[in-house]
């Protein structure tokens, strides 16, 4: 049996909580919507890709300049969508890559390939617009001409072209190890 005090308190609670709920929704009603009208009505100069986190797992990308051809990514891939061919070439002075293909149609964006990469050469990008009209065109071929694999230098990289690429790769790896680090 409900007492009269409870009865009145129920009414008071109903009125107060409904009013407060409506105050919350009213405060949202007069705020700016957060919607981004992708893809055709974005603010000038804004790409949705730029709003995504640094380690967003979009399309895979390989920086051939710093790839050591160690095949760690090929072994790590659980669905074998990465194929690398590299041979020792005495004349060139190291491993020469003749093929580095990633089949993006098979890729499941797990990120296991970028984990063991010693230089951060293979990494996901925030690019996600990968739709195409044929399966063949989804295979990304990174080696256009036979390329000499990268060899890490003991003293640290000093080449002005390669240094920023390597720094970016190392940052990618560092953020994987400690996502909260700046």
């Amino acid at each position: 049996m409900m007492g009269f005090g409870t009865y009145l308190r129920n009414i008071k609670d109903a009125v107060a909580t409904i009013a407060d709920g409506m105050a919350v929704t009213a405060s949202h009603m007069i705020r700016k919507p957060v919607t981004l009208e992708y893809p055709d009505r974005l603010p000038d100069g804004v790409r949705v890709q730029d709003t995504l986190p640094f380690r967003y797992r979009g399309m895979l990308e390989v920086d051939l300049e710093i790839c050591t051809a160690c095949l760690a990514c090929e072994r790590a891939c659980p669905i074998d969508c990465i194929v690398i061919e590299a041979e020792k070439d005495k004349a060139a002075g190291g491993l020469v890559m003749t093929r580095f293909d990633i089949d993006m149609a098979k890729c499941m964006y797990c990120g296991l390939c970028s984990e063991p990469c010693p230089t951060g050469s293979i990494h996901h990008t925030p690019e996600f617009e990968g739709a195409d009209y044929s399966l063949e065109s989804l295979v990304r071929r990174f080696v256009k001409a036979p390329t000499l694999a990268y060899k890490p230098k003991k003293a640290g990289e000093d080449d002005p072209v390669i240094k920023p690429i390597l720094d970016r790769g190392m940052r990618y790896l560092a953020e994987f190890a400690d996502p909260d680090a700046k």
């Binding site: 929704t25 949202h28 919507p33 919607t35």
Partner: peptide, 10 residues
């Protein structure tokens, strides 16, 4: 329109 704004949409 009103429901959109309440849910921070357009």
């Amino acid at each position: 329109r009103v429901m959109g704004r309440i849910q921070s949409r357009i």
